[in-house]
Design a protein around this nucleic acid. Structure first.
Lengths: 326, 326
DNA sequence: CTGAAAGCGCTTACAG
DNA sequence: CTGAAAGCGCTTACAG
């Protein structure tokens, strides 16, 4: 069923059908209705690719590239982006890219060949070493990044300063009398290095000498085991984690080993995800406002296309949510 | 940059460029290289919509419709689908649809107009009353459903029997000596009604007379409050929940009220998500194998297009994962 | 081995 | 108000 079929069935030319579909140009009321009737009867929808070819009209498709949607942080960002972009008439193509540079590049090429209007990268996985992939993409279309800062033409960033966030968390631990601090992270990314940097900066400013930086396997059980090996009575009294899952692992280990939280040990998570509300004691966690970042980005994309201008640098605030582990 | 530019730059016709791109037909080795060089230098990728128009070639795009990607269950399904479909050369368009029938229909129309090859519906939200939306879609393209059973031409279902699962959980509670059982659910869907049905069937078969069916607000805090109101010493000794988040809420309430789990109360969650591993005590939960369902569906889609046949009905097994709450 | 031409399903000046 | 025709960027018989 194409525009020719409809035209024939309605007894008009394809030009007329096109006019009624697009509501452009003059069409006699009666012929309009006649055409409309045929269209609805046959459930006809014009093919976007033909429209795209003909007018260069946008496919109204935004490519979204993230590392892992199973991570609640990414899931939330994607959920908000999809909801808000949809309001502006866009659909999203979701890609999750693996580790290798080549895989990432081919994922972007795919998106570009599918004629998406823009690409948004979620997460700091793409900053730092992988920046080239983003720079390449930006030569073809506007790029939006959530939660990382990459400098370049056509690149729009919305982020929360992950160094400052951890700095504040460390200070909060200090203010509760904690003097022996450990920082736990898992995957080596631009984001985790910023966090580590914030931790070390705070520790230095606060004059804390007993500090540990620990790398864990990237899941709850891994963090749990790692902590069991790490722990020695009196070695640390405050743990800052680069995400909530690690923190949950540490709580699990603490419980198993009879360490009282927050009595002997304070624990702070990161992302303020559902996980933080599930653990007991409930986890204090840093709210880094992904939701706000995603909302802003959706709006920014819409502005970019409708008003031809967009914000290049947006920094969101953050807040430490106190629950029961601090 | 289009095929004409490349042809001009390489000093050949567009037909030749097309041949080297598609690796079809004869092309002299030297001219092939000449063309290739121009293509890579300018980072040229043929536009999918033009190819699609020209040959009717698939866009290699699968529409995925789900209720809420923030829910770990959907997130996992989407993650697996995207990973596996990608291996078969497909990208996914992700839509999350709201409640209203109209919204859902327009979401599907959008997908169809964007020329996706197939649509997969995740979750039972679309079965039962909303079935018509699926039936409509199936008239245009192949439809795949994860976790619901809908009869119809061109409709392929992969699911886990949600009545049997809950039946088994109730029996497990019974076998641990539990005789007063409550079933907690939140949203009213096809799936939750199947689960409730399984619960009631089990309770009847087991000859249990003290039984409760409770509807909670759809989040952890809501379940927590609901349970606080529900609880009375000796009223129930086993709680079956329609998802892990509700179960986590009940654990939270139990802890607050000093109810020992599983001493006084056994709790079973559903979906075996990350949440089940985060709570303490760690939640026993029903593994309903979404991962398996999603993997199967990706393969089934690929078979549908490459071998022109696909499985219409696939039922996955399930397993109750015992942790500390049963 | 290579190119000219038709055609995919649309839209949009242009002419009437 | 309506239609004939050109054009969007590709692919693919067909002819050479």
């Amino acid at each position: 069923m194409n525009i020719y079929d409809i035209a024939r069935l309605a007894g008009v030319s394809i030009a007329t059908v096109s006019r009624v579909i697009n509501g452009k140009g003059y069409v006699n009321k009666n012929t309009r209705e006649k055409v409309l009737k045929v269209i609805t009867r046959h459930n006809y929808t014009p093919k976007k690719s033909a429209q795209n070819l003909s007018t260069g009209a946008s496919l109204k498709l935004i490519g979204i590239v993230c590392y892992n949607i199973e991570d609640p942080y990414y899931a939330k960002a994607v959920a908000v982006l999809q909801r808000d972009l949809n309001r502006f008439g866009y659909d999203i193509i979701l890609s999750c890219t693996g580790e290798s540079r080549k895989q990432r590049q081919s994922c972007i090429d795919m998106l570009i060949s599918k004629n998406v209007d823009a690409i948004v990268f979620i997460g700091s996985v793409f900053a730092g070493k992988s920046e080239q992939v983003i720079l390449n993409a930006a030569r073809h279309l506007p790029v939006f990044i959530i939660n990382a800062k990459v400098e370049g033409k056509n690149i729009h960033c919305a982020y929360c300063d992950e160094s400052d966030t951890v700095y504040e968390c460390a200070r909060a631990l200090f203010e509760r009398g904690r003097r022996k601090l450990a920082f736990f992270y898992d995957v080596e990314t631009y984001g985790s290095s910023k966090k580590r940097e914030g931790f070390l900066r705070a520790v230095k400013d606060l004059g804390i000498s007993e500090k540990y930086v620990m790398k864990c396997p990237p899941d709850l059980e891994g963090a749990c085991r790692e902590f069991e090996q790490f722990w020695e009575e009196g070695k640390a009294d405050g743990a800052m984690c680069s995400n909530d899952e690690l923190a949950a692992g540490i709580l699990k280990a603490a419980r198993k080993m009879g360490i009282s939280v927050p009595g002997q040990l304070s624990v702070i998570g990161y992302n303020n995800s559902l996980i933080a509300r599930c653990t007991s004691p409930a986890l204090s966690s840093l709210e880094n406002n992904v939701e706000k970042l995603a909302e802003f980005t959706a709006k920014n994309i819409s502005d970019y296309f409708s008003e031809n201008q967009a914000v290049l640098d947006f920094k969101a605030d953050f807040k430490l949510i106190i629950r029961e582990t601090l």
